[in-house]
């Protein structure tokens, strides 16, 4: 990783996009990187569009602004494609990852003038099959790690397991489901 990788997350309040950005910062930190993970705060309400950001770098990060020209964009909620210009400023060499049941071609029709790479994943299906409830952020986190080649897969899974063990110390029964969600998401994203 030569330059700082910048990622922008689009989600809706309550879907865990902010948590996913913080988890990504966490896991990248564990693999020795300099990181930033931060949400853009506004009048927060369930269902309102929210944006969160990550920077991952080999060098200390000094900039403290939002991200306008991301390398990657993650769309946790497909309905945002109708109202938000999610590919705005997105690098031509980067990619967008969308949580959807539709094929890529359908999604591309909604991304006007976008010529970069696109990946899709049905995060609902992954989440329901592994966790048993709809938590789109866990599959989307694994998807962006895979798409961006942000770290080695085994490193990612190892650090996420440690992180889940800490986070779910009082409900260890959910760890396996979350780990399976990560693994399945890495296979499903395409």
């Amino acid at each position: 990783m030569e330059k700082t990788v910048e990622i922008r997350w689009h989600g809706r309040g309550g879907q865990g996009a902010k948590t996913a950005a913080l988890l990504l910062a966490d896991v990248a930190f564990q693999t020795g990187k300099y990181v930033q993970g931060f949400p853009e705060y506004g009048p927060e309400r369930m269902g309102a569009p929210i944006t969160a950001y990550n920077r991952i770098s080999e060098k200390p990060i000094r900039v403290h602004s939002n991200i306008y020209e991301p390398d990657y964009v993650v769309v946790v909620d497909e309905s945002l494609l109708d109202t938000i210009d999610v590919t705005k400023g997105l690098s031509r060499d980067g990619a967008i990852v969308v949580n959807t049941t539709s094929p890529k071609e359908e999604i591309l029709k909604k991304l006007h003038h976008y010529e970069g790479k696109i990946y899709v994943i049905d995060a609902r299906k992954v989440s329901m099959e592994t966790i048993g409830q709809y938590f789109p952020n866990t599959p989307m986190l694994a998807a962006i790690v895979k798409v961006g080649g942000l770290m080695e897969e085994h490193e990612f899974l190892r650090e996420m397991e440690a992180s889940f063990k800490h986070k779910f110390a009082r409900k260890p029964e959910v760890i396996e489901g979350n780990m399976n969600a990560l693994k399945l998401a890495m296979k499903e994203v395409h």
Partner: peptide
């Protein structure tokens, strides 16, 4: 410290 910009941002 700066509200949200540093208070809510995770950094090294």
């Amino acid at each position: 410290q700066d509200g949200f910009i540093t208070s809510h941002a995770v950094e090294n």
